[in-house]
Design a protein around this nucleic acid. Structure first.
Lengths: 262, 262
DNA sequence: GAAATAATGTTAATTTCTCACACGAAATTC
DNA sequence: GAATTTCGTGTGAGAAATTAACATTATTTC
């Protein structure tokens, strides 16, 4: 019986970090390997396990190490992100054509857009939905292939789409920045698109929290020379501030209010 | 150099939940696949990633929240909309180009799409986001002006976008249907777009609950002759069933199960 | 500069996985 | 209660992906 079997496996998942297919095979000699594979697939779908070669691993035993910056960043930077978003919103200009990048930083950003008449263009469906909520602004959704990784639109269609529009102010969020590599991301298509945007925009505003400084991802889409404003928090290294001023780039430092505790 | 490369991969692990070997191969064309495998192995050893078929997953993105998806699935209300959506999902064809309309009916519809490989195109950002969640299908977001009242993409850009793609099966949701006026909506641009879709699609499937029968909105985008399948519930008037069969349109009646179970 | 060590490349063998289809039992529908 | 559909399962071929063993090239160390 399927339900019983899966219940047993589920319990096993609670006691062991890894279960091999062989093991399951020995445990349930009456069912075929394929069935057990499908069971594992099921647990992968429910998010309880992760399929690996030869079996599966129980997510309950997967611990993000304390030095893991990812989980830290996901949780702790909310306040900072919001502060950055707020500060960046100052650079919005009524009636101009504004490009808004994709990603969690930008999703936070659009929540702070004042209810005025703007003309937005974006590559992020979630951003587009948020922006068109108030009904004040015109919202242009860039068409193209939607990547499941980063939920952004890219590809030939997107490129073509962008070539047809003008951009006055562009708000972008890189995944990393270093003096040597400039502003970079981890996805080639995403990089291509951002490059076009930077190229077309009259004013480029970067939203980047300080945890991303000193990092270089594989694909660089522009350098400080191309950027007008960098909005970040107080964790920005001094060397980067200096370098930016040499390039004529303004740096805006926005910190989360000390008493912000939700 | 190994250290640099691994540092880059480490950064990437911080931005993406999954990295494929192909991806790494494209990123570092100068090293062999084997080297990248060894890199992944290294990250598995440090506990930063988990080796899975085709690449690796970043532990930072693995969230252990038990029963979340399971309980959700069990809670799902088995309503008419779900029944219609489920019945309509039968007309999905793996590997074909599928168009999905905008609106709440379609948002419900995409929740019932089986996790197979499809190629989707849609005018609804929320639909697009949902579809790309599982990462199985290719999702094309139609670009253009996003209307705030119905949250659908329309306009010249959208038209042009659609003209570039082929549609095998189109799933559409009209706002009203009557024998005299056919399938209609309340927005001119929306109508224009749907008309194009109907025109291009080899198979047209309409999702329409019976409350919409007998209604005619200002803009008609097609008639029963153009439609291959109508999926609705048992409230459909007899006259409409007759008329449909005259036009060679198949009617699928999907009702919610009488008794709720599980 | 030579030996030692580490990093990477190459290839073949093996294993695992996926896919497509078939089958029977249970549930549903008429 | 018969027919149909759905669901869980089995099978086997074929296509990956992974491993392992060995060859080769950098890098370090003395």
């Amino acid at each position: 019986m399927q339900i019983e079997r899966r219940e047993i496996i589920r319990e096993l998942l609670g006691t062991k970090p890894f279960i091999s297919l062989d093991e399951l095979g020995r445990m349930f000699p009456d069912v075929s390997e394929m069935t057990l594979r499908r069971d594992i697939e099921y647990f992968e779908e429910t998010g309880e396990a992760i399929k690996v070669r030869g079996g599966c691993r129980s997510v309950g035993f997967i611990t993000a190490k304390p030095d893991d910056r990812v989980s830290e960043r996901l949780k702790e930077n909310v306040g900072t992100k919001r502060a950055i978003a707020k500060a960046a919103a100052e650079f919005l200009e009524t009636g101009r054509s504004i490009f808004v990048d994709s990603g969690s930083t930008m999703r936070s950003f659009v929540e702070h857009v004042p209810g005025k008449r703007f003309s937005f263009t974006t590559t992020d469906p979630a951003v587009a939905l948020e922006l068109c909520k108030d009904g004040m602004s015109a919202v242009n959704m860039v068409g193209g292939r939607l990547e499941s990784d980063n939920q952004t639109v890219t590809g030939l269609q997107a490129t073509r789409f962008l070539s047809d529009i003008n951009i006055d102010v562009a708000f972008l969020a890189p995944s990393g920045y270093s003096e040597e590599s400039g502003f970079s991301v981890g996805n080639f298509n995403e990089c291509e698109l951002k490059r076009i945007v930077v190229d077309k925009a009259k004013v480029v505003v970067m939203l980047i929290d300080s945890s991303k400084f000193g990092k270089s991802l594989p694909y660089t889409f522009c350098t400080a020379e191309n950027v007008d404003v960098i909005v970040t928090d107080s964790g920005v290294p001094e060397t980067i501030v200096k370098h930016a001023s040499l390039c004529g780039t303004k740096i805006v430092i926005a910190d989360a209010p000390a008493e912000e505790k939700k």
